[in-house]
């Protein structure tokens, strides 16, 4: 056995050893390898990138959202200097004064629409490919819940600029909640936080928008991606002879070699 060079020793001590130490306790390295070094069907292409595109939009929302939270103040109290509410004033200063604040706010505002569109497209693709069928039922259900949570993010986030559009759309929204049987009126009263929608409602929407719903959303996305990795990406249903059909019991000799054929996703 040749003596290890100094460089090899350095790499081993500085990088591999700590990684091994972490992996021994968490299986994080094995998990990452399991996620990255797996095979996917040969014939997947652009249609199957919509899910990761939605994930990218979500990451954009998370990053811009954290930056906005550093400068935004969820208060409907009137600012004595500007004569406008504190929330509205902070949105004005993010848009007008903060360096690139307009870009951060604009990306958050429009990223929401892009996220929702991508979720719908992704869902449409999964439906068209019949990819919600066995064994991917739970992947589909977490996906539907992600869509519902995404819509709730849109509803709670719409109020935060505390301008006329935000305010009146939310007044209607809360009244709509109130029409639901059983919990409806209670929920509407809780959200409004009083006879008139003001700082109480703003604080509640803010907490839901940046703590509760994103928490649920991140957990659901985690489960969704775990399931996709565990069960594999389904191939297009029209790929080769495999889709939805049994294959001939005995394959002709040599049929596998050189036959360009889909990998029979999920059948």
């Amino acid at each position: 056995m040749a003596a290890k060079s100094k460089k090899d020793l350095l790499v081993e001590n500085a990088i591999l050893a700590p990684l091994d130490w972490v992996d021994e306790r968490t299986a994080a390295v094995r998990g990452t390898k399991w996620f990255l070094f797996r095979n996917v069907p040969r014939d997947i292409s652009w249609a199957q990138t919509l899910g990761s595109a939605a994930l990218t939009a979500f990451i954009v929302m998370a990053v811009t959202g954290v930056i906005l939270a550093m400068y935004y103040e969820p208060s409907a109290t009137i600012d004595p200097v500007s004569g406008k509410s504190v929330a509205y004033t902070s949105i004005e200063s993010i848009t007008n004064e903060l360096t690139l604040g307009w870009l951060v706010r604009g990306m958050h505002r429009w990223g929401a629409s892009v996220f929702i569109i991508l979720l719908f497209l992704h869902m449409g693709r999964v439906f068209l490919f019949g990819a919600y069928k066995y064994p991917r039922e739970l992947t589909w259900i977490t996906g539907v819940l992600i869509l519902a949570m995404g819509m709730l993010m849109g509803f709670t986030g719409y109020l935060l600029p505390w301008d006329q559009t935000a305010y009146w759309a939310t007044v209607v929204g809360i009244n709509l909640n109130g029409t639901a049987p059983f919990a409806g009126p209670w929920l509407a009263q809780f959200l409004a936080g009083g006879p008139e929608i003001g700082s109480d409602a703003l604080a509640k929407f803010y907490a839901l928008h940046m703590l509760a719903i994103p928490g649920a959303l991140i957990a659901l996305i985690g489960v969704h991606i775990y399931l996709v990795t565990r069960l594999g990406v389904s191939s297009p249903p029209w790929s080769g002879e495999a889709a939805g059909r049994e294959r001939p019991a005995v394959e002709p000799a040599g049929a596998r070699a050189g036959l360009v054929r889909g990998s029979g996703g999920g059948d």
């Binding site: 095979n39 069907p41 040969r42 594999g232 990998s263 029979g264 996703g265 999920g266 059948d267």
Partner: peptide
Amino acid sequence: RYKDDVKKEGKPFF
């Protein structure tokens, strides 16, 4: 069958 196919003939995710 799907798993077998992907293992033998699939392309690497990464």
